[in-house]
Nucleic acid binder design. Structure first.
Lengths: 250, 250
DNA sequence: CCAAAAGTGTTGTTTCTACACCCATGA
DNA sequence: TCATGGGTGTAGAAACAACACTTTTGG
């Protein structure tokens, strides 16, 4: 799809989409011992941004977030939840806003996409290896390490920070790693997720004891053989317990 | 203001308000050992509802919530925070929706107020005695005990429930009573707030020890003399500590 | 043999919980 | 003098934090 087409598509959707509202998705993944965030970039604009989308007039907000993410990850049933709504009138960095509108040929701010937006922030946790990123000629999509995120469009850096702080506040009640890790994993991987989110190191032994005292983990009879170290026991999440916990809390 | 006027006012505001979005406010107060919620009711409609309002096109969402609440409580600077955005396409109970639209003379659903809304839920904590409710000929506003809330318009009962569960999840980190209680109060009042929010009884002595181990409270040299019991020490919140905590977390 | 990472265990401290006892007041 | 609610304290259980020692593997 050419740039002109994508813009036309955006321009002619007043009947389809709820105006003045969008969903912004913060998608977390874990790979190579690093927590990552999925970002997207229009070819015609110079900054990366969170995956965003509009809400159809007859669509649930959650469903809109699912639709947006399905489009770029190919995944149905992503685990996601809403964490905050953002919307100062001049929320978008004004320069960013004017720049991108100019690139889209919207010079007078009269079209609804050029006007003030309220965006509903969603936090999604996905298993990295399941994601097969779908891009197109107009859009690049890529994983970024959490500590290497560039300056993003508008207030998207803040939105990521807010998503993280939400997760942080829930880390003691929810099985955070459940949706991020593959079927089988060593505890050290889970510990790294906790350390990244909390921003501090955790004592390996205390962490292990604490996490195993919950009902969320199942010790497997399998080992992960990495080079240069003792074989490590693998664990799985107890899906039943985890799903129950995720449903109850959020 | 007559009913016709209020409706005219709503009908002719497309230029002023952000369409398709509203703020719904859950205002908590505490009086007479009971947690209360402020509800409002249009004379021409038979159900009570949360205080709601639209967002002006050039207005911050938080500011909109403040404006709505100032109008009915007379208070500036109410402590409030956003807790969730609601918006299934058929979120409003369909019957309620059609009924109220009919009462307003909107029969064909073409006006934007008749269409699908996304509403941003705000939770406000106020000191009951400071509130001087302002009603008008079209609108009644009243405090309801939390356990005596009737069936409300649309999904407003759910919204209250969600507000409560948000508070519940923060009760261990935030000085919840700070904005609800008057300058000086006995600890038993604070305990009742906790008990109401948590939905269970708390051991008087353990509660006291725990709450005093935070930095939020100051023991005064004054006593509250109630009938039929020992004079009770009064406490105040340490404003500095409390404000710091409220700012940091939310 | 060594470094690296993992398995297992200990110990002292803090926090939580469930109580007991006494006191001051108005009826 | 009694019922009510408040002030103060204590003992056992549970949770937490800090740390030691051993095992296995590849180089």
């Amino acid at each position: 799809m050419k740039r002109r087409n994508i813009i036309d598509k955006i321009m002619n959707n007043e009947a389809v989409y709820q105006q003045g509202v969008s969903v912004d998705c913060v998608v977390f993944g874990f790979h190579d011992r690093m927590l990552k965030v999925l970002l997207s970039k229009f070819n015609f604009f110079y900054k990366w941004m969170l995956p965003v989308g509009f809400i159809k007039k007859d669509e649930d907000i959650d469903a809109a977030a699912h639709r947006v993410l399905k489009k770029i990850t190919g995944l149905d049933n992503i685990y996601l939840y809403q964490f905050h709504a953002f919307g100062s009138p001049m929320r978008p960095n004004l320069k960013d806003h004017n720049d991108i509108m100019a690139k889209m040929g919207l010079k007078d701010n009269s079209h609804w996409v050029a006007q003030r937006f309220i965006s509903v922030g969603y936090c999604a946790l996905v298993e990295y290896s399941q994601v097969h990123i779908r891009t197109n000629a107009n859009k690049d999509v890529r994983w970024f390490n959490l500590n290497e995120i560039p300056s993003l469009y508008s207030d998207h850096n803040n939105i990521i920070e807010k998503a993280l702080s939400t997760i942080r506040s829930q880390i003691n009640i929810l099985p955070i790693g459940y949706k991020l890790l593959p079927e089988k994993f060593p505890l050290s991987e889970l510990r790294i997720i906790y350390e990244t989110i909390l921003g501090c190191e955790l004592d390996r032994r205390n962490f292990q004891r604490k996490i195993l005292s919950t009902e969320y983990l199942i010790k497997l009879d399998e080992y992960c053989e990495k080079t240069g170290q003792k074989p490590t026991v693998l664990f799985s999440f107890d899906k039943k317990q985890c799903d129950k916990a995720l449903q109850n809390i959020i």
